[in-house]
């Protein structure tokens, strides 16, 4: 019964039905009307389901690879109501202290060439933390925000895998 009511609400075109997000940017919630508006979607595009990660099924999360005009995105989708409930729960339960810690992970596998920072040092947002060499090119990993270096988890010369923890900014 409750489901039927919700579905009818959703069909009014104003209630967010679904939340979609890419990993690095703000999520988006879409209503029925927005879902049906195809006007902008004229670029060549493909969409395919991606494998779920641990915990996705229980949370009702699904994952997609969408390529639009050559740009590739990994998008997660979930029921908007469920997502909002979870946000609320998270906000209530967030513990002080941990909210400000950011772990910087390797975006590409490669080799650490240089370290620009050490533990205890203060950094500005965008400050270079270390260099990673991959495919003969050196890439600088920058600090996602201002703070203090908590820990440096790698040394120059180390090989790192995708997603490996590099530096903790507190």
């Amino acid at each position: 019964m409750a489901d039927a009511v919700t579905a009818a609400d959703a069909m009014d075109g104003m209630t967010p039905l679904i939340r979609v997000a890419t990993e690095t940017d703000e999520p988006l919630e879409l209503t029925m009307d927005e879902l049906l508006a195809l006007s902008d979607d004229r670029d060549p595009a493909t969409i395919r389901p991606l494998d779920l990660r641990a915990g996705d099924r229980a949370a009702g999360i699904r994952r997609w690879e969408v390529v639009v005009d050559g740009w590739r995105f990994e998008v997660m989708s979930e029921d908007a109501r469920r997502a909002r409930l979870r946000d609320r729960a998270r906000k209530g339960g967030a513990s002080a202290g941990s909210h400000s810690r950011v772990t910087v992970r390797a975006q590409i596998p490669g080799r650490i060439t240089r370290l620009f920072v050490q533990a205890g040092e203060g950094v500005e947002q965008g400050a270079p933390l270390l260099g990673v060499e991959a495919m003969k090119m050196e890439n600088e990993v920058r600090s996602p925000r201002a703070g203090t270096i908590g820990r440096v988890l790698v040394s120059a010369g180390d090989r790192v895998e995708l997603g490996q923890e590099l530096v903790v900014v507190e």
Partner: peptide, 13 residues
């Protein structure tokens, strides 16, 4: 492109 990708994922879901 990202906005379109989000809409497409929403529809597919």
């Amino acid at each position: 492109a990202r906005q379109q990708a989000l809409r497409m994922a929403a529809r597919a879901a």
